[in-house]
């Protein structure tokens, strides 16, 4: 900003320096924009070259597969309710995976967050360690752990649950510790002064302050985890994703099943999104008033 203590220059001086400043900014902005466009274009070309089919060829065929599936499903529309009923248990398994892993992740994430926040940690010296742990947990994509565990335990919901829970613990650990930073430490000190143990201090001093935010983040995580558990099913971890892969592997003739699964998955995601969005809205607004 302009230096107020200096003698004010003439209007034209100020004007000149302003114009110069904006021009310089514009040049920088232009260079950045060109660089950005070039990067995007180069990236697109590389991706296009390394892909099996090219963008221009595939673009016209985007809707071929959906129309094929929907067309066949439409012909057998009478079977659809039966299919939906048939795949409902798989859907429930997918939701169970997401819910259980979210719950486990919330508990683990709470501990990670409390142990890695200054002023709340049980062992202040180990704060960096717990931060790194949650960083690493967060960085591991679910599929890595899921595939390794599938090798050890065989296919099924448990590998997916463990994999998602670990990632959730890391992600929530970070978010929760950000929430913790904003919490007041006075209740903790007060409880400390009357001789409360660490667990009591956290349970009575911290959790009531951060509870609504925790729940809000946990709900958001639940939305994400439903998608994740569907994807992990696709690589062999049970649930609706597994059924989807099977019915897709059958190809034509079983597209009505694939369509039923698409529908189930779509509506589940939309419904969960709506409910959790509504709840989160209420939580944040409730906290504000």
């Amino acid at each position: 900003m302009a230096d107020l203590s200096a003698a004010p220059g003439s209007v034209s001086e100020i004007r000149d320096s302003y114009v110069e400043l904006t021009q310089r900014r514009r040049v920088y902005g232009g260079i950045l924009l060109v660089l950005f466009v070039a990067l995007m274009a180069a990236g697109f070309r590389t991706a296009d070259n390394r892909n099996a089919g090219s963008f221009s060829d595939g673009f016209n065929r985007i809707f071929d597969y959906p129309t094929e599936v929907l067309g066949e499903a439409w012909e057998k529309v009478g079977l659809l309710p039966g299919h939906i009923l048939h795949f409902l248990p798989a859907l429930i398994e997918t939701i169970n995976i997401a819910a259980a892993s979210t719950l486990i992740g919330v508990v683990a994430g709470t501990f990670l967050a409390l142990l890695s926040t200054r002023g709340m940690a049980l062992w202040p010296r180990l704060i960096p360690l717990f931060r790194r742990i949650s960083d690493v947990f967060r960085a591991i994509p679910e599929i890595v752990i899921a595939l390794v565990l599938i090798f050890l335990l065989g296919g099924g919901p448990v590998p997916a649950m463990i994999a998602i829970a670990i990632h959730t613990a890391g992600a929530l650990g970070k978010l929760f510790s950000e929430v913790n930073e904003n919490a007041s430490l006075k209740p903790v000190e007060g409880l400390h002064s009357v001789g409360a143990s660490w667990a009591q201090r956290m349970l009575l001093g911290v959790i009531p302050q951060v509870g609504p935010n925790y729940v809000s983040y946990a709900l958001l995580r639940f939305e994400i985890n439903i998608r994740a558990s569907a994807i992990l099913g696709f690589v062999g971890a049970g649930g609706i994703g597994y059924e989807l892969r099977n019915s897709m592997a059958w190809g034509q003739g079983r597209y009505d099943e694939a369509a039923a699964i698409f529908l189930l998955l779509f509506f589940t995601i939309v419904v969960v999104d709506q409910i959790s969005g509504h709840l989160r809205d209420r939580l944040t607004h409730g906290a504000r008033t």
């Binding site: 099996a52 595939g58 985007i62 071929d64 597969y65 994807i231 998955l265 779509f266 999104d273």
Partner: peptide, 15 residues
């Protein structure tokens, strides 16, 4: 709502 999984499946048919 059409999750990344389904988009991946659909798009990999085309591309």
């Amino acid at each position: 709502g059409v999750d990344a999984l389904i988009w991946t499946v659909v798009l990999s048919r085309a591309f």
